[in-house]
Write a protein that binds this DNA or RNA. Sequence first.
DNA 1: TCCATTCTGCACCGATCGGTATCTAAGTTT
DNA 2: AAACTTAGATACCGATCGGTGCAGAATGGA
Lengths: 202, 202
Amino acid sequence: MEITRKAPIGRPRGFDADEALEQAMLVFWEQGYEGASLTDLTGAMGITRKSMYAAFGNKEELFRKALERYTEGPAAYAARALEKPSAREVATAFLAGSVSTTTRPDCPAGCLGVQGSLAAGDSGRAAQDALIAWRDDGRARLRHRFQQAVDEDDLPPGADPELLARYLMTVANGIAVQAVGGATRSELQQVADAALRNWPPV
Amino acid sequence: MEITRKAPIGRPRGFDADEALEQAMLVFWEQGYEGASLTDLTGAMGITRKSMYAAFGNKEELFRKALERYTEGPAAYAARALEKPSAREVATAFLAGSVSTTTRPDCPAGCLGVQGSLAAGDSGRAAQDALIAWRDDGRARLRHRFQQAVDEDDLPPGADPELLARYLMTVANGIAVQAVGGATRSELQQVADAALRNWPPV
DNA sequence: TCCATTCTGCACCGATCGGTATCTAAGTTT
DNA sequence: AAACTTAGATACCGATCGGTGCAGAATGGA
């Protein structure tokens, strides 16, 4: 029987891996996967290339882990929105979260899940695929939530969960692009309000 | 008085500059500014680096010219939409054109004006700025067109041309992102229809 | 105390980046 | 034919790319 080893032998790492990952996420968010060089990344993380490779594997894995952190951090609004009691509140919270996260003054404008690797050469193809899967996953969760709403008579029987989910995701993605172009929070919230004006009534 | 010289002295270029630019546009469209290397570009254009530099200046200028060609080619739907007789038809044609152009089977998925350089490192910053200006210009044209519609009582007096323009642009940008993720033409047309369901009545 | 292990800092790897120099061949004007 | 300009091919430039090898420092277990 092995007892749980709390501290692995050897010299412990001299940096906070979570904090380093946070900084890497911000660099990817601002510059995209291909636009973020290892020099940019490790510079912001405050560690050397060697330490980065030992802790995170390689650039591609670092990106995946940064995306995970993004999901649980800045993009956590999506998971919170899904827990709202009604479909309308889900949609409203989802777009409101999208607006506020893409226009945070202390973070890069836009959405890592969109601009992290929207178009890419060969070297960024894996990151591109990861983001496509990420957006698909978000859309699937919305679809399931709206299917549940239909089942609960929270949406009219004729409502199409698939379409509603894609519609919301499309608007959110557009908001992210607009944010990169410098659109303000209030401008985008108006757009979100407009997009919800034709939401199916209960 | 100089007479207009039709053919400049020296050996004429041995390739079709328009066709070469078309191929460069397709590469930028698919891989983005930073993701498209000179090797990729000149390979698709069928010319050498030297010829490319002589004909187009450098990579950045090549991108600007490819964007112009994109505007007059695949993205010409936008200019055509602006000439529709009513605001509603403008909006409908704009989104329909956005859907069909981002899902053309013979072209890369998505929109060059969005994915050409959404996020970028230092080297892609100029292309990024060019695309932001490009999208701003499209939005301004929509705004002017809707202001005209308000003046002509083609839109209700309370309609906000600025908001309507940004709303349409946001949906179109979202459609472009969705197209990259593999959304089909009919799926996106449904989204476009949904987005127009709350268009202000005359 | 000594060893094993892992960290850090730095130099370095081959490959590729955008961009050029150099050469010959070719075509058009004067 | 002379003058001029460009095409095409090749080789090259310094810089940067993602990724490593190595030596030394630091820590845990024995």
